[in-house]
Nucleic acid binder design. Sequence first.
DNA 1: TTGAAAGCGCTAACAG
DNA 2: CTGTTAGCGCTTTCAA
Lengths: 346, 346
Amino acid sequence: MADVAERAGVSTSTVSRTLRGLTTVSPEVRARVEQAARELNFAVSRQASSLVTGRTGVVAVLVPTLNSWFMGSALSSLGPLLRAAGLELTVYVTPDLSERASFFEHLPARRNADALLVFSFDLTEEETARLDDLGMPVIYVSQHVEGRPSVYVDDVAGSLHGTRHLLNLGHRRIAFVKTEPTSGFSFSSHERLLGYRKALTEAGLPADDGLVVAAQFGDKRSVAEAVGALLSLREPPTAVFAEQDELAIALITTLRRAQVEVPGRVSVLGFDDHRMAEWFDLSTVAQSPSDIGRAAGELALELMNDSDADRERHVVLPTHLIPRSTTAPVPGGQEPREDVNPPADS
Amino acid sequence: MADVAERAGVSTSTVSRTLRGLTTVSPEVRARVEQAARELNFAVSRQASSLVTGRTGVVAVLVPTLNSWFMGSALSSLGPLLRAAGLELTVYVTPDLSERASFFEHLPARRNADALLVFSFDLTEEETARLDDLGMPVIYVSQHVEGRPSVYVDDVAGSLHGTRHLLNLGHRRIAFVKTEPTSGFSFSSHERLLGYRKALTEAGLPADDGLVVAAQFGDKRSVAEAVGALLSLREPPTAVFAEQDELAIALITTLRRAQVEVPGRVSVLGFDDHRMAEWFDLSTVAQSPSDIGRAAGELALELMNDSDADRERHVVLPTHLIPRSTTAPVPGGQEPREDVNPPADS
DNA sequence: TTGAAAGCGCTAACAG
DNA sequence: CTGTTAGCGCTTTCAA
């Protein structure tokens, strides 16, 4: 910066002011400084400036993985939003429990970010407490934590509506397939199961634990076992609600391979509206990760810049049922019954 | 840090040495300092330390998007690798040309990273030159640039082998469907087309431009048009090689919807071995993005830490043909001909 | 093995 | 509107 100052014939203070866009610089001086900076290919060292301002100019995100449709979409919208605000995005990828433990032990973000976005984690009390005294805004994304800023879709309502759709098609035996609980790395899982149960209760149907099974969509065997469990029930389901689209696709493939027609014999409903859902013509409950990313970024900016901002704000995004061709009326021509519809819409 | 020093009854120099793991600290002092640091919940400010050391402790990546199977997998393996080396990962997401221009204009990474990994870009000479005097190692990933460190799979060989597979099944009319050229955001595209052409030439087949069409897999209409173009040829293809798995899936869906059996009438081969490929039972040419991410990270570490390292090293990763159920012998029972096989294996 | 002192490159407060 | 001055929190000589 000293070089730039010398070349422009001014002090470093002036260079600093110019480069930060302060208005208290005369146009001619500004022009000279900018040219000098350009000629010398100068860029301000964030390290040095943050040392004195106390702001790092970076927003950190903690994610279980980057290898998912959800995270990819969310961060792809978050990134540009932050850059537009002059901020950098640093990512902590925590694929397993030991990485996670290490993150919480060292909290490397501590002094190296102005805000932290925590994605899709199911945190322990202790972990949350740890983050509380991190000294920066912490936003919980795709999950909600009491009394802390959060951004998420209403998973309960989403699966409530999804299940109602199946009920309205006349289905009475509706299974729910959840992902294998990879301890602490998913939050929505419970909520979606909750919405499913709520809809059944609403319809006066008894809870049947045999209809709730778990599977990992990366693992053909586990999917086959889940399907097997359902098909071997005394009274097998006529519809399956999958916790995620990818799981739904795995289920459909497995069912069809076993000569069980979808939706002829079993309807399958997903959750996400994953990019692949359209090609599979999968009926699903849509959420928009890019909206989530954007909302989370905006909330982060607000909390960073405005100390009066509501530090307990919850931003809840909607879901939308997208009926496509993997859900159909219950086989046997049974007409949807009136009493299926809930007394009032939530 | 001063607080820690006081609490441990030593100087800040000693604290600094301890926390960096230097061996020139007596065990008892080290213990005291570590405890004090823990009690005060202290973390070193990267900003301050990098100001004096000149190293930022961050590795930057420039990516066109995060919203893809490839990027997600690559970064999911890169992230933990860097963290293990005590480095942070900052991501510049550049989804469009204006963001890209802005990145190259300001080069925000300039003084704020120790290395830059550039993913999947098709750079202009000028952009490459710009990166050359960034003052840090720049590694080109999933692309190769003459005289610069690069990590990529051998796309040419991959599609050469893929095409040979189709030839060996007796196919003679083999189409290639590429992605719409989103100017400058893909590199492998050309290479894969090249490998395809090479295989045809090898087999003594003429190049037929009518067999090469473009489509965007996000856009049903464009996929339908591409399929239409192929089906309306005087002599339609009996096999289609798609530049990417997602495109292959879109093609298969579109073909089947049009009552064109796959692989009964048309074989379809993909490229990537995307997570979904297995569920679709898609024949494909596999690459491993997580291996790429890992190799890129290792190369970056090497270039950052060892000034004698080869600054022009190219790491080329292999591809593997995975035959599944979307490729079959050419319809009509025509036997594979001997002269299809190339004189020598590459 | 430890401490004292001198900056790293920048911004902020205060004069002018 | 611009320059001077004093640090921000660390690491690194250099001495002890």
